[in-house]
């Protein structure tokens, strides 16, 4: 796992893609931060910015995950990985953590904004921390779905577009359809599995264990699917 993780991280940092991701992330974050936190709401709660960043991640995440599995297949390097004495799960975990490291790295660049908030107001340590934790958890679900889709195709473009479409669909479903549902049971079920509504807990400064478990298990589920897809290819 360590070898794959290191290689994947290096490949992000030796390629324009990693910097494009970091650059656009910081740009979006700064713009949203200036508008929401400094100009429009004049709030010291960073989670407002993060709840808009979730939409930015729609575009950014596919950049990060599109090549993870599909490039290996296209370059036939999966033959090296899958004939090496390592489990498929550790290969995929290595890739997952490499992508997550890049998300964390992007978050490091958001710390100056927190410094501004601390100077200008009182953001509250726990509220800020929860906003970050929530965002990291949310990203982990995005990354795992992205890897899963990347494992389905050899073509990076298809992988990126499909990932974007699925994120978009999920969000649209949550925002447009779920609030309009009349049946209370159906509403409860659908809003229960909604990614975005879970995030609002964190953004309101509430630490909800079920949300944590929910995100973690969703990420696990898609990583598990990826492992199955990778192993299943052998039997095709």
């Amino acid at each position: 796992m360590k070898a794959v993780y290191k290689r994947e991280l290096n490949s992000y940092l030796n390629n324009p893609m990693g910097y494009v991701f970091l650059g656009i992330f910081v740009l979006f974050f700064s713009v949203i931060f200036c508008y929401i936190n400094l100009y429009s709401l004049v709030s010291s709660n960073i989670s407002y910015t993060f709840s808009y960043m979730i939409y930015a991640m729609l575009v950014l995440m596919p950049l990060l995950t599109m090549r993870l599995m599909s490039e290996e297949k296209a370059q036939k390097t999966d033959q090296l990985l899958l004939t090496a004495p390592v489990k498929a799960s550790s290969i995929i975990l290595g890739k997952f953590f490499a992508a997550m490291t890049l998300v964390l790295l992007a978050l490091v660049f958001t710390l100056p904004h927190i410094v501004i908030l601390v100077i200008q107001g009182n953001p509250g340590f726990l509220v800020t921390l929860l906003a970050y934790i929530g965002f990291i958890l949310y990203s982990s679900v995005y990354v795992s779905i992205g890897i899963f889709i990347s494992s389905l195709t050899e073509n990076q473009v298809i992988s990126a577009v499909l990932t974007f479409a699925i994120f978009m669909g999920l969000l649209a479903l949550e925002i447009l359809f779920v609030p309009g549902i009349q049946s209370p049971t159906l509403y409860k079920i659908l809003s229960g599995i909604s990614f975005a509504s879970r995030y609002s807990d964190f953004s309101m400064g509430v630490f909800n264990l079920t949300s944590l478990v929910y995100y973690a298990s969703a990420a696990f589920l898609f990583l598990f699917f990826t492992v199955r897809v990778t192993e299943k290819r052998r039997w095709a």
């Binding site: 036939k76 390097t77 033959q79």
Partner: peptide, 11 residues
């Protein structure tokens, strides 16, 4: 194992 197409990372 050396496969038919060497599994190389070009970058």
């Amino acid at each position: 194992y050396l496969p038919e197409q060497p599994p190389l990372y070009l970058n």
